[in-house]
């Protein structure tokens, strides 16, 4: 078992909702390596949830396929279709942790874990063993007999995660698992996910917290308007540095043309008075940019260079700022 083998293979996946004018997913091709953490990023409505829904058998694709591989090397088709609900298929290979607290509030921690474990086909000693393991993963031993509704928000998040791993799935899919979680519980969840990854579990992680994705994920894909706009390892995607300029007034078109023409610049994005230039040679780019500003009589109020962050990459690729869209109200 090596990390380079794909556990999930997504091929030409396309999906348009009934009545929708634009496809939610358009010819998406992705591979998720085994025993890695894969980050899926995109602004609100980009198609992340649709992709996760099809992967988890909740929705049906119009065309294309998502396949997941078991330990014996057999590939199983995903998506809501006949056969999904059968034990022994793709559904047993995937554990979903939805963004919502997907359990029964009036049942106890133990009752919730037993119920969802039974639905995964666990019985007897195996059910008890997995329940104990999941409780340990969620560090919920002290709350075993407590009703879920009586747990704190952080503990409820942990229970949500514990239920997702009740059947020890090789692929764990997490949709915004740290939304609304205090910093302590958030750190706990990230630590547990890192532990699961080191234990061989493959993780598909969607989040608006770019620092989490940067910290946790080995590879990632940025998805926008149903299309994959970037896909690769974290190192590859963040290899470029950025030069950031802020002008006193809105820059003229001539300046933008000259900046884009600088040989070391690989991408340019501007928003009002803010200019972001991705570059392989930040020092040369910064010098050339300052000269161009002078030529065009543009006053610079700020100029800096640094390593490209996931946030600037995301901003550059999608033209959207995740935190500006009111998607996640808990972000400070």
């Amino acid at each position: 078992m090596t990390a380079s083998l794909a556990l999930v293979r997504i091929t030409a996946l396309t999906k348009t909702y009934p009545g929708g004018t634009h496809p939610a997913l358009s010819s998406v091709d992705l591979e998720i390596p085994e025993a890695s953490c894969f980050g899926l990023l995109g602004p609100n409505g980009a198609g992340k949830t649709t992709l996760v829904s099809i992967l988890c058998g909740i929705r049906r694709a119009d065309s294309g396929s998502i396949r997941v591989r078991d330990a014996a090397g057999r590939w199983f088709e995903c998506g809501a279709r006949a056969g999904w609900a059968r034990t022994g298929g793709a559904a047993d290979l995937i554990g979903l942790v939805p963004q919502e607290l997907a359990f029964y509030p009036t049942l106890t921690v133990r009752e919730n874990l037993h119920y969802f474990g039974t639905l995964h086909g666990l019985r007897g000693a195996r059910l008890r063993e997995r329940t104990d393991a999941s409780v340990a993963i969620g560090r919920l031993e002290a709350h075993w007999g407590q009703r879920a509704e009586a747990l704190s928000g952080g503990l409820q998040r942990r229970l949500n995660l514990a239920i997702g791993v009740i059947h020890a799935p090789p692929l764990l899919v997490l949709d915004e698992p740290t939304v609304g979680v205090d910093s302590q519980s958030r750190r706990f969840v990230l630590e547990e996910l890192a532990r699961l990854k080191s234990g061989g579990t493959t993780i598909l992680y969607t989040s608006h917290y770019l620092d989490e994705v940067e910290q946790l994920c080995d590879s990632l894909a940025v998805i926008d308007q149903g299309r994959v706009v970037a896909h690769g390892s974290r190192e590859d995607l963040l290899r470029d540095s950025v030069v950031t300029l802020r002008t006193a007034a809105r820059p003229p078109a001539a300046l933008l043309e000259q900046l884009a023409a600088i040989p070391s610049v690989t991408a340019l994005h501007h928003d009002e008075t803010a200019l972001t230039l991705a570059s392989r040679d930040p020092a040369a780019t910064l010098a050339a940019a300052m000269q161009a500003a002078q030529r065009n009589h543009v006053t610079l109020v700020e100029a800096s260079m640094g390593r490209r962050s996931l946030e600037t990459l995301f901003f550059h690729l999608t033209g959207a700022q995740l935190r500006d869209e009111g998607v996640d109200e808990s972000i400070p």
Binding site: C56, G57, I58, A80, W84, A85, R86, T87, G88, G89, A91, D92, I94, L96, P98, Q99, E100, L101, A102, F103, Y104, P105, F116, L119, H120, G121, I163
Partner: peptide, 16 residues
């Protein structure tokens, strides 16, 4: 449906 349990159930090997 709204609290997500149905989503979780539908992702599991459970017939409708």
């Amino acid at each position: 449906r709204t609290q997500g349990s149905l989503t979780r159930l539908r992702s599991m090997p459970v017939p409708g």
